[in-house]
Design a protein around this nucleic acid. Structure first.
Lengths: 248, 248
DNA sequence: CTGTTTATCGTCAGGCAGACGACTATGATC
DNA sequence: GATCATAGTCGTCTGCCTGACGATAAACAG
């Protein structure tokens, strides 16, 4: 082989696509934008865009995220800044036929964000929305065409990553506002996994895991009922032993 | 933005790099090749190469693997064929400065293979070898320069992926020949995690997990001592509950 | 035959999770 | 204001799994 001869190999376009997940009204939702041009014109797609010349992949993802949602990603490598959205690389998709026009390799990223107001994509409220992932992934049955390109696969991979990762990490707190109650955190797990959890056992588990939650001092009744203690995410990122997802 | 205008964005070179892991003499080892040219001439690096024009990323990784080791990857999407090496995508590395010559985005793949004879890289035995990952990742101390490019980071990520993934999947069997004993499987875990496991508890765990192991019918004494029953990997890919890695 | 090595079966105590009872503190409704 | 509905929080009990470890079995080396 003749390594690194640029002329010997066809150029690739490199993009980032974003799977932005949040929990709204007890459902796991993803951010989708409407395509304004061919191909797949008018269809919903994941937000994304080209990686620029002197830009790292994570930086490109953070930039796209900021452009689409105003969120400032909380890159583990750049701590402190941002309103807490979690960003991580998901996987890379490079099937030669995934884009009919040219060879595009897309590095998908996963973003977990707290519930946000309606998205603002280029100021056009009609061109971006939060949609329940169940709806986006239920293709064919109702005649809806599903997402553009291979974005249904990317979304499915992102959802599966989120579902499994909250098992053994404290990542579920990324779906919550800075201060939250145990019940709110439980509703996150229930929405992401699509199951009902026992409030008492859940409470015992999360409050009994050292470093997972730290008391924030106050209480709230925003969920109704008895006032609940407010917590902040603790420093622990790994949950050991993990929170087990109930079987089916 | 003006999507998909090829001239509007700089072209990227896309490569695949391989983290090929195996267990040799009770140590987790990785395949490295010696670089024949600048930059990093003479240094060890992960095997890899350019993705071709009409080639999927996984196909490129499988091709490079075959060229470097003769292994035929057992892609989950293409079952049956191959001598059982496991291949999966690891992560993508695209720092603008990771290659001093041009913008290269590398899609790293992880390969888990049974113990193999000495590698044959382009027929040159001196240019490829199995090296213990501890040795490859212990940089600076002994003055050795470490791996080329960002390959130390890629290797570290691959090792961490392997270490965590054998916890909750049956992937450790990918390090074993088609038929193996419980003790051989245990030595795989011990080598990958770098810990000692209790043979009795390990035996109880793996034989008690339905679908993990299926008896192959025979016995062997290739490890010495009492003959051990031979097993084959069962159909189960997920281990529930997982095999817990001992603390520290 | 004896010691060494490895495999395999059993036992026991502690920890954790699932099931679920009981009590508490708020707002809503009559 | 009494009652109800809603959520949160604390306990109890039981079964399963794990870690620690004793004991036995089946080969080989001397």
């Amino acid at each position: 082989m003749s390594p690194y001869d640029p002329s010997a190999y066809p150029p690739f376009a490199v993009t980032v696509d974003l799977v932005v997940l949040t929990v709204r009204r007890h459902a796991l939702c993803a951010l989708v934008v409407r395509r304004g041009e061919q191909p797949f014109q008018g269809r919903w797609a994941l937000p994304g865009g080209f990686v620029r010349g002197e830009e790292d992949l994570a930086a490109a993802a953070a930039r796209e995220l900021s452009e689409e949602t105003g969120l400032c990603a909380h890159d583990p490598a750049v701590p402190g800044a941002g309103n807490g959205a979690h960003l991580e690389q998901l996987a890379t998709y490079g099937d030669p036929k995934r884009d009919p026009r040219m060879r595009v390799v897309s590095v998908a990223h996963l973003v977990l964000a707290p519930d946000l107001p309606a998205p603002r994509a280029g100021g056009d409220a009609n061109s971006a929305r939060w949609a329940p992932v169940d709806e986006l992934l239920a293709v064919g049955d109702d005649g809806s065409a599903g997402l553009a390109f291979d974005h249904a696969q990317i979304l499915a991979d992102g959802v599966e990553r989120a579902r499994s990762k909250i098992e053994y990490s404290s990542l579920a707190t990324a779906f919550c506002p800075p201060e939250f109650t145990v019940g709110e955190l439980r509703r996150v797990y229930e929405a992401v996994w699509g199951v009902a959890l026992d409030p008492r056992n859940f409470h015992r588990k999360v409050t009994g895991t050292p470093g997972f939650l730290v008391p924030a001092g106050g209480t709230t009744t925003r969920q109704g009922g008895r006032p609940a203690q407010l917590f902040r995410a603790g420093g622990a990122t790994l949950l050991n032993p993990p929170m087990l997802r109930p079987e089916v």
